[in-house]
Nucleic acid binder design. Structure first.
Lengths: 206, 206
DNA sequence: CGAAATATTGACCAACAGGTCAGGATCAGG
DNA sequence: CCTGATCCTGACCTGTTGGTCAATATTTCG
């Protein structure tokens, strides 16, 4: 029974360097896409040599996979937090606000996923059609219930969710465009917060 | 005075092959991003040999630039078509509908620009802060006028435009995600058309 | 037709990028 | 403080990719 096959717990150095590498990889992959990124860039950003990076991860692909899968749960978590018992409008507004804040605080993560999905999501297809789809269907049926009971205006729940994703992540993914068009002296996220609160208020009030 | 420095008009073959290459490049670049694309892939998609592609364009970069700049006007045209004399709500709804249709009919173009902006728009920064910004400001002040005269609800005009871009292009840029989440038996663009018409109706009616 | 202009290609090159490896440095813990 | 495990690196290998070039094929047009 005492199978000695268990993987050894990571040493302190392993733990630190793996996270340093993933942090660097997040910066590089989100800015350059998978193919655009090089191991050298990641190594440089991590302050390590290339062979040393490859000592901790088997391959570039391995880094990328670890990064994506490690971030996915955190990224989708707010969707899980929607409370069927809560006040419908407030629940949606909270979700919008949280997603917008995530775009502001974690733009690299947003761009990482955007890049991946844009390229056809070669690594996420199963998850998209599986786990994610179930989560979205779950949230959508909560919305549908609220609509049925007259607590929300009649809108397509799935597209309501898409709209929240599109509107909030837009500010991270297209940040250069937003800033270039607005010019100096703007706080895009603050303005977006007001705009989106008003939008979903008008859209969803029965 | 008869400067013979003018560039020779392109032959029929030049004209055809250049456009064949750009068409192929659009497919490849939009699916792979700039760095992910290879000249071989473009050549293959165009049905030409790699050296032959480089006979018509000086470099990979040259292909990419020609493609982007050639498409930009077409892509931004609908924004110019907003008529200050028109019926405010109808003008916005028309713009939304046109942009959504463009996402459906020209998803490659949408993804091409999305890729470029995501990576920081190294080639478009001047245009974004210059020509595009002026166009957006122009449209925004039309909207502002309509709001002032009570024909539209009070919303931030710039973010109104961003919202239209985000919502419509989302269906092209994140198409795999949308389809994966919706599953079979859906026509995302048709559903989105209904959803967005309702959204902007509720948002903008005074 | 025939010659000049244009179009096409196979072979090649240099730079780059992912990945390997043998050996040396460093560290943990008995 | 010694030894085995862990960590790190320079040098190297290989496949890919952007790009060149001389030579050949094709088109154009007088």
């Amino acid at each position: 029974m005492s199978e000695e096959d268990e993987q050894p717990r990571p040493t302190r150095i392993q733990q630190k360097n793996r996270s340093v590498i993933l942090e660097a990889a997040l910066t590089v992959f989100s800015a350059q896409g998978f193919r655009g990124a090089t191991i050298d860039q990641i190594a440089e950003a991590a302050g390590l040599s290339k062979p040393n990076v490859l000592y901790y991860f088997a391959s570039k692909d391995d880094i990328y996979r670890s990064l994506l899968t490690g971030l996915l749960d955190m990224w989708l978590d707010p969707l899980r937090q929607i409370d069927p018992q809560g006040q419908p409008l407030a629940e949606v507004q909270r979700y919008v606000a949280v997603k917008l804040q995530m775009s502001r605080d974690y733009p690299r993560e947003s761009r990482l996923f955007a890049n991946e999905v844009l390229q056809g999501a070669p690594l996420l297809t199963e998850i998209l059609g599986g786990q994610l789809r179930e989560m979205v269907d779950g949230a959508a049926s909560i919305f549908a219930g609220w609509i049925e009971s007259g607590q929300l205006a009649r809108v397509d729940p799935h597209h309501l969710i898409f709209s929240i994703w599109a509107l909030t992540q837009h500010y991270a993914d297209f940040e250069v465009q937003v800033r270039a068009v607005l010019g100096e002296g703007h706080d895009p996220y603050a303005e977006a917060g007001i705009f989106l609160a008003g939008l979903y208020d008008r859209l969803l009030k029965p």
